[in-house]
């Protein structure tokens, strides 16, 4: 997954061109307000980037780009909360990266069509396993791997909900989708994760 996003292609893939921040932005008060408001969420933004991109180097680049973009748009920021706002910017940055990966010949497997509006509940598959089976505690590495294996819309939704503790409404705003879509993606994400979780237990490594 790594390596595709080197410095030269990054500038062109994400911003279209390199934009010197100082040329756009030269208000020290504003920059200070921005730092105070946005930098405390660096770990949160970075965590989301790691789950969205599944690569540490790509996450570094995306987070940096997210902060620079956020500063450029800080004037138009009206709230309500800084964290979801940063998340939605990060998500746009990451999507530019997905688009770039998708145009690369090897990246097709990344995009699973999101048929979440489809009423057919695919998560019924989980019924095949005995429902009374308890989920054993898994360590963080295993859980991370299981989350990483989910297709993008589901991974994104469950990470925003479970790890970032966003409300349905906040998630809906971040991913720019109706709350109903968020609910159905979350239901599928959890069903798929549970299945993978139980499969993991059947063949312990």
């Amino acid at each position: 997954m790594s390596g595709g996003w080197n410095a030269s292609s990054r500038t062109s893939a994400i911003t279209g061109k390199t934009m010197p921040v100082n040329a756009v932005e030269n208000d020290p008060d504003k920059t200070q307000r921005f730092r105070d408001a946005a930098l405390p969420y660096l770990d949160d933004v970075y965590t989301l980037a790691r789950y969205l991109l599944r690569d540490a180097t790509d996450a570094d680049d995306a987070v940096q780009e997210c902060y620079l973009r956020a500063l450029r748009h800080f004037d138009s920021y009206r709230g309500p909360a800084m964290k979801p706002w940063l998340f939605s910017i990060l998500r746009n940055v990451c999507h530019a990266e997905f688009a770039r990966r998708a145009s690369a010949p090897t990246a097709a497997a990344e995009d699973v069509p999101d048929d979440s509006s489809d009423a057919a509940p695919l998560w019924h598959e989980a019924q095949e396993s005995p429902e009374t089976q308890l989920l054993r505690r898994r360590d963080a590495t295993v859980i991370r791997r299981l989350i990483d294996a989910l297709a993008e819309p589901f991974r994104e939704t469950i990470v925003l909900r479970e790890i970032q503790n966003m409300s349905y409404r906040e998630i809906a705003e971040i991913v720019d989708a109706p709350v109903g879509t968020v609910m159905s993606r979350l239901a599928r994400a959890r069903a798929m994760l549970r299945e993978a979780w139980m499969a993991e237990e059947e063949q312990p490594k």
């Binding site: 989350i147 479970e162 790890i163």
Partner: peptide
């Protein structure tokens, strides 16, 4: 249970 397990700080970066 899954939800509790995912609240683990180890899952955060």
């Amino acid at each position: 249970n899954m939800s509790k397990a995912m609240a683990d700080d180890e899952l955060r970066f």
